[in-house]
Simulated scan of single mutants.
Amino acid sequence: MIKIGILGAAGYTGGELIRLLIHHPEAQIVFANSESNAGNYVADIHEGLYGDTDMKFTADMPFDDVDVIFFCFGHGKSEAFIREHHIPQHVRIIDLAQDFRIAGNDSNAGFMTPANHDFVYGLPEINRELIANARHVANPGCFATCIQLGLLPAAKLGLINDDVAVNAITGSTGAGQKPGATTHFSWRNNNMSIYKAFTHQHVPEIRQSLRQVQGYLDAAIDFIPYRGDFARGIFATEVVRTDKPIEEIVEGYKEFYKDAAFTHYVDKSIDMKQVVNTNKALVHCDKFGNKLLITSCIDNLLKGAVGQAVQNMNIMFGIDEKSGLNLKPSAF
């Protein structure tokens, strides 16, 4: 059994991670850390877990007793935590924040990145072998995962040569559990809004992966994110200019994802409900003149966060990549 510790276990990602791991056939949660909730039952905070676990949150962090730690912190806390705490060499780390997603110091990142870190970028579709041999993995961002999975096969085909227009809408859980002016029901319901247009923090990691696959990236990724009036899921469109025939593009997409455990090219139009509550990513392409329209969708809490983190854990420990992740979508 893989012995697991969870830090920041009281938030949305912590709760979703516990939901997956308590039913994982090869995993055991040793501790779920939350100083503010220490001593409280996990199910009293994550109420969907009533009847599934009698675990309590703890303020303790017995690192010597675990094989892997999941960091479910807010952005900017992981790097400081590692500096301030001794984590044994044998303990692997999967970080769900953005702190280590960019390799080394990247002046284009838009935020400070720790220099010379050893975290592998945890997108299995392009880094499976690196993840398998990694001690530390930086889990990708939710928007970044969805958009990259739409664009990476195009990059493999060498098609990202002009600026790419990207629009994506996310559910309210993407904003985290702490209430805010743009998350409460009366504001979010029957409403849409734009935020962080062209400046979203996930753009640098998208660019990093596209450069990795295509070998270069001179084009801009013009990303406009939207807040949606639903709880979970991301639906994205990406527009790439190319004269390559759609038949060749579709063949390239299917080839790129032929061995992917959870990412699938679909021959007809896709919708978000097909992936909500699963670790799947679906991708579809259409051609309009010289414009390639790519649609991609994921569940922001699963393939966009903890589902992908568990997928990375499975790869790191050499077990079935799909273990603990055979989830059914919400059909209606």
Rank of each mutant, 00 (worst) to 15 (best):
residue 131 I to L: 12
residue 145 T to R: 11
residue 90 H to S: 08
residue 291 K to H: 12
residue 33 N to S: 12
residue 249 I to E: 03
residue 176 G to H: 02
residue 287 K to S: 01
residue 46 H to N: 13
residue 28 Q to A: 14
residue 150 G to S: 07
residue 62 P to W: 10
residue 55 M to H: 00
residue 317 F to V: 12
residue 2 I to Y: 01
residue 313 M to S: 04
residue 198 F to E: 09
residue 90 H to F: 13
residue 80 A to W: 00
residue 156 K to M: 13
residue 241 R to H: 15
residue 206 I to Q: 03
residue 16 E to M: 01
residue 23 H to P: 06
residue 301 L to V: 13
residue 315 I to P: 02
residue 300 N to A: 14
residue 106 D to L: 00
residue 206 I to K: 06
residue 176 G to R: 00
residue 177 Q to W: 00
residue 320 D to K: 13
residue 325 L to G: 03
residue 127 N to M: 14
residue 183 T to H: 02
residue 86 H to K: 07
residue 157 L to I: 14
residue 115 A to N: 05
residue 331 A to T: 11
residue 117 H to L: 10
residue 59 A to N: 12
residue 183 T to A: 02
residue 165 A to V: 11
residue 128 R to W: 07
residue 328 K to F: 06
residue 322 K to M: 10
residue 218 D to P: 03
residue 263 T to W: 00
residue 73 F to W: 04
residue 148 Q to K: 03
residue 240 V to G: 09
residue 304 G to F: 02
residue 302 L to F: 13
residue 301 L to N: 14
residue 69 I to C: 07
residue 53 T to C: 11
residue 278 T to M: 04
residue 331 A to L: 12
residue 2 I to R: 02
residue 8 G to E: 05
residue 124 P to C: 02
residue 199 T to Q: 10
residue 289 G to S: 06
residue 114 P to K: 04
residue 165 A to K: 14
residue 126 I to E: 06
residue 261 A to H: 04
residue 46 H to V: 04
residue 330 S to Y: 09
residue 130 L to R: 15
residue 17 L to K: 10
residue 163 D to I: 07
residue 284 H to Y: 06
residue 154 A to P: 08
residue 291 K to V: 01
residue 114 P to I: 05
residue 85 H to M: 11
residue 154 A to Y: 09
residue 165 A to T: 09
residue 159 L to F: 09
residue 74 G to E: 06
residue 66 V to W: 01
residue 188 R to E: 03
